[in-house]
């Protein structure tokens, strides 16, 4: 290019102004996005930060209303020590883990198989069934716990974690199946046809093609099932009254609130400890949550 070449704005006078305005628009979009995100972050992170601060205070400091609740004069780990040193709380943790692991396992086996059948095998009533599965999810657990109490009671599973293992999948299976139907349906039909011709039977098609290709969906469903069963509150409140069968969610609340006495420091420490496993699970599984895994399967 010669040194005397005209700048684009000299040749096309309108062009320079247009580029400038686009740049300005982009800057505004960014500023607006940042402001919204910062507000959202403050709003979301406020409660956990308040819990953390409170859990590190002594009971005396918590009770001192003359000080700002957002400041700490003396950090103490006694609340955590008390919680972790109490065998009953370790029991709550243990119960939660057992229930959650079993519920996630049961949910994923049922919903992956069900979703595969509903997404890929054309059989009489498959469409109606697929819709039906989702509709069952729309009935809230606050309505269902009364009839379910009768059923669980009838089975002699009140005050047992096995009652929870039986009941939680009614919440998790429909939704996870629904998510997985969507993921499986997005896998190109030619992929199963290629597998069929290559010699795969339905089970091999599921295990060797569908599950690996739909892994992001399976992980999303797993996270959902984990969250639901770890954080369930209504069902254990209704079905469990004895501390040795309680999961963390109701254990912390029932044991640390005595009448109108709130052990705030321990409550916050317990709640934070209870929130830790989901955080770890999310952080760990997110690494595997690679979107666009199907890129390259077909035309791309």
């Amino acid at each position: 290019m010669s040194a005397t070449a005209a700048r684009p704005s000299d040749v096309l006078p309108g062009l320079g102004r247009k580029i400038g305005s686009l740049r300005r628009e982009r800057r505004w979009a960014l500023v607006t996005a940042y402001i919204s995100l910062i507000i959202a972050a403050i709003f979301m992170l406020g409660p956990p930060l308040y819990m953390l601060l409170t859990s590190l205070k002594t009971s005396a400091e918590i009770a001192d209303l003359s000080r700002s609740p957002w400041s700490i004069s003396e950090i103490t780990f006694s609340n955590y020590a008390q919680i972790l040193g109490d065998p009953m709380f370790r029991g709550f943790f243990y119960n939660s883990i057992i229930v959650t692991v079993l519920v996630v396992a049961i949910t994923m086996v049922i919903s992956v198989l069900a979703a595969f059948a509903l997404a890929r095998m054309r059989f009489f009533g498959s469409q109606v069934l697929a819709t039906g599965v989702f509709l069952t999810y729309l009935v809230p657990d606050t309505l269902l716990f009364i009839p379910l109490y009768q059923i669980v009671g009838g089975l002699g599973l009140l005050n047992s974690i096995w009652g929870l293992v039986l009941v939680y999948p009614t919440l998790t299976v429909p939704f996870c199946t629904w998510i997985m139907i969507g993921y499986f349906a997005s896998i190109p039909k030619e992929l199963d046809e290629a597998a069929l011709i290559d010699g795969a039977n339905w089970m091999q098609m599921l295990t060797k093609i569908f599950i690996p290709v739909a892994l992001p969906g399976i992980i999303a469903a797993t996270i959902f099932a984990f969250t639901v069963s770890w954080a369930a509150f209504v069902y254990p409140t209704a079905f469990i009254t004895q501390p040795d069968s309680m999961p963390l969610t109701i254990g912390v609340v029932s044991q640390l609130i005595r009448g109108d006495t709130f052990a705030w420091g321990q409550l916050m420490a317990g709640a934070l400890l209870a929130a830790l496993p989901p955080v770890i699970v999310y952080a760990f599984l997110m690494d595997y949550y690679i979107a666009g895994l199907t890129a390259g399967a077909t035309k791309g």
Partner: peptide, 28 residues
């Protein structure tokens, strides 16, 4: 299809996205 001893090439290739080229060819 699997017992007809045929092989098919599809318009949109239908390669298994999670497998290497080698495994795609070796799968059958």
């Amino acid at each position: 299809p699997r017992d007809r001893d045929i092989a098919m090439v599809f318009q949109n290739y239908a390669l298994y996205p999670h497998m290497t080229v080698y495994d795609n060819m070796a799968f059958g």
